[in-house]
């Protein structure tokens, strides 16, 4: 029953523990902290997209709600960061129910557009509701969060904190997949008719997973606010929703691990490209953040055209094909032995 997944989780924690010993540069640590936020949101999105088969192109909006709830409640109302994060979760649950109950009755393109439209509405509100969000100027002086009396105001501390939360998110996610509820969700993805024929209450399951994945995003948003101490509407635009979708698709939609790998890879990509710039300076090629949109779009397209199951599956098949000896079965995790 998915033992590989839990071995993977142990490896994950081991890697997280050792990284700050290997990477001492604070800048790179901070890049990895941002990767953690994306990772958390992507794990949630992958549960919705890859397991339940329901698309959302509005998830950045949930990240935004979490971030703004944390920002507003701590700065303007003086709440403690933990309380504000909790309130953000509650708010996101309510919003996800409000939008999810009608939206999840829709399928395919309609659901995609509905979530897209909803995300855009929240973005417009973030820009226009100056009294609450500070408008385009945003909210600043958001306090840092502390844990057991320890203020998490250094990159390294926040690195451990954020990745520990990703680990917890992964643990919950993995448990869920290998459970009655997880099978119900995967059944809905496989055949909604068949799932209903054995008694899976599909509307209820879809809304549950939609809300859960929104909660993952909300927590990612709150963490972002406490780390950066400043928020504006920019990072919660539709482009970020598409980026989250890209991350999940790149790693592999049908595995939570795909979301983790995809989120890390795409979060590190800009750094990698800037690094490459140095090598290509001679030929006049220079990486510039403006290229990100084009690059992300191209990656998403290439993956969808050539590796629709994502990198994990693609590399697995490649290894299986080349190695022959290395027998990597698809859906090995669910072999149920």
């Amino acid at each position: 029953m998915g033992r590989q997944d839990y071995i993977g989780l142990c490896v994950f924690f081991a890697v997280v523990l050792t990284i700050p010993f290997l990477i001492t540069n604070d800048y790179y640590i901070s890049v990895l902290v941002f990767a953690a936020f994306n990772c958390l949101a992507c794990i949630g999105l992958s549960l919705l997209l890859g397991y339940a088969g329901q698309i959302s192109i509005g998830h950045a909006a949930f990240v935004g709600v979490g971030a703004y709830a944390s920002g507003y409640l701590t700065v303007e109302m003086g709440w403690s960061p933990w309380m504000a994060m909790g309130a953000g979760v509650v708010l996101v649950v309510l919003i996800a129910l409000l939008i999810g109950v009608p939206a999840l009755r829709l399928k395919g393109h309609y659901l995609a557009m509905a979530t897209f439209g909803f995300g855009t509405i929240l973005y417009i509100v973030a820009v226009a509701a100056v009294d609450f969000t500070g408008g385009p100027a945003g909210l600043s002086d958001i306090p840092a969060i502390s844990l057991f009396g320890l203020v998490l105001d250094t990159d390294k501390r926040f690195f451990y904190f954020s990745w520990a939360i990703v680990g917890i998110g992964l643990y919950f996610g993995l448990n869920l997949i290998h459970s009655r509820v997880g099978r119900g969700l995967r059944a809905i993805h496989g055949s909604e008719d068949a799932a209903e024929s054995v008694g899976v209450d599909t509307p209820f399951y879809k809304i549950q997973i939609f809300v859960l994945s929104a909660v993952y995003s909300s927590i990612a948003g709150s963490l972002y606010a406490y780390y950066v101490n400043y928020i504006d509407p920019g990072p919660f635009s539709m482009m970020h929703s598409v980026l989250l979708l890209t991350m999940v698709a790149v790693g592999g939609m049908h595995k939570v691990w795909g979301a983790v790998i995809g989120a890390i890879l795409l979060s590190l990509l800009p750094e990698f490209l800037s690094f490459l710039t140095e090598s290509f300076q001679a030929v006049g090629l220079e990486y510039n953040e403006d290229y990100n949109t084009l690059i992300h779009g191209s990656i998403l397209l290439l993956i969808m055209l050539f590796l629709p199951e994502g990198l994990i599956d693609g590399l697995g098949r490649l290894a299986g094909g080349v190695g022959g000896m290395i027998n990597i079965k698809r859906h090995q995790d669910s072999a149920g032995t």
Binding site: M239, L245, Y291, T293, L294, H296, G297, L300, M304
Partner: peptide
């Protein structure tokens, strides 16, 4: 997802 990808490639 493919048409979304094309859309952001064109936008970029």
């Amino acid at each position: 997802i493919i048409t979304i990808a094309v859309s952001i490639i064109l936008e970029g």
